[in-house]
Design a protein around this nucleic acid. Structure first.
Lengths: 168, 168
DNA sequence: ATCATTGCAAAAGATTTGCAAGGTC
DNA sequence: GACCTTGCAAATCTTTTGCAATGAT
């Protein structure tokens, strides 16, 4: 929902997501199907966070020639993750996906009021994790950092309504 | 699973978890029941990470006078979280609980091989989060940082078996 | 033609809920 | 006695799976 231009500019990679995915398919003897095309386009049209349901809402409905069933959506999202195109994490029990391929490392602020995810880059974090890992002899593959709280807009909105109540 | 003594020593608080929970109940007109007692004891007997199923395994079975049903386990865990006694986070889609009341802030390494959670304290992290929050006008309530990878033991085990294979 | 892929229906796993019966204050 | 809690059964929600039909190479 909130990938601003400055961040997006840094997203430059050799092969496009489409090319990359086709390589992935070929290398595994998998096939290029209409469903995979439809999903590839829809997923990489906008670089937002989304869950399976949000994606399905944007897809053609049952009956349409480009309809994709729910199981196939889940299967294909898994393939995108496998291919290194998407990253998956969990928020409140459900899976959330976001663009990953060639996109800079970042973490998220999660507003418990409006449920929005806001990206941020924390410079010192990598260094800290390296040290922790070394101290524990731990081989890091990945990490998830989600900071819960209230975003600026929601905080202001709350303050406004609180003032309104005070006046009564 | 892995709370060592040095960390546990720091766990000192004014009121005991039991006292604290009873205050919580009273302040809300809730009642002290046998089930809540049983769970309170079992949960705070050992300070490990656990999910609902692991807790239920340790409880008396159906038929026993101290049996607690699954829905009540879930309901009561929620109350413990509400009362500030437990902290809840998600690992691989299921809820994991841990002691929180008076326990020092920490985060977790998660071994994808043995599924163990290893606690760590990262000194600079708070500072980093404060800065990020300030930059975004974000009111932080909490955070979850889980570092995925392979723990020392599992890494060694893998290396051993790899050598064994090489020899063939 | 071969074998991967899909959609359907159904299953699965974790957690939640409606409600009548029972327990606490 | 009032009303909070519980256990049961069933529902929910999200994701996964078996399988026969369909599609890609």
């Amino acid at each position: 929902m909130d990938r601003d231009e400055t961040t997006l500019e840094r997203y430059k990679t050799a092969a496009s997501p489409e090319e990359r995915f086709h390589e992935y398919l070929q290398s595994r003897g998998m096939r290029s199907t209409r469903q995979r095309q439809v999903l590839l386009e829809q997923v990489f049209a906008q670089h937002d966070h989304f869950d399976a349901d949000q994606l399905i809402e944007k897809l053609p409905r049952r009956g349409d020639a480009d309809y994709v069933s729910r199981p196939t959506v889940y299967r294909t999202l898994g393939e995108f993750v496998d291919a290194g195109l998407l990253k998956k994490f969990e928020v409140d029990g459900r899976g959330v996906y976001e663009f990953d391929y060639g996109y800079p490392e970042h973490d998220h602020l999660h507003c418990s009021d409006c449920d929005r995810l806001i990206e941020f880059q924390a410079d010192g974090l990598e260094q800290i994790l390296r040290e922790v890992a070394e101290r524990h002899g731990f081989r890091v593959k990945d990490h998830t950092l989600i900071v819960d709280g209230v975003c600026e807009e929601c905080f202001r909105a709350k303050r406004r309504s609180r003032r309104r109540l005070d006046r009564i």
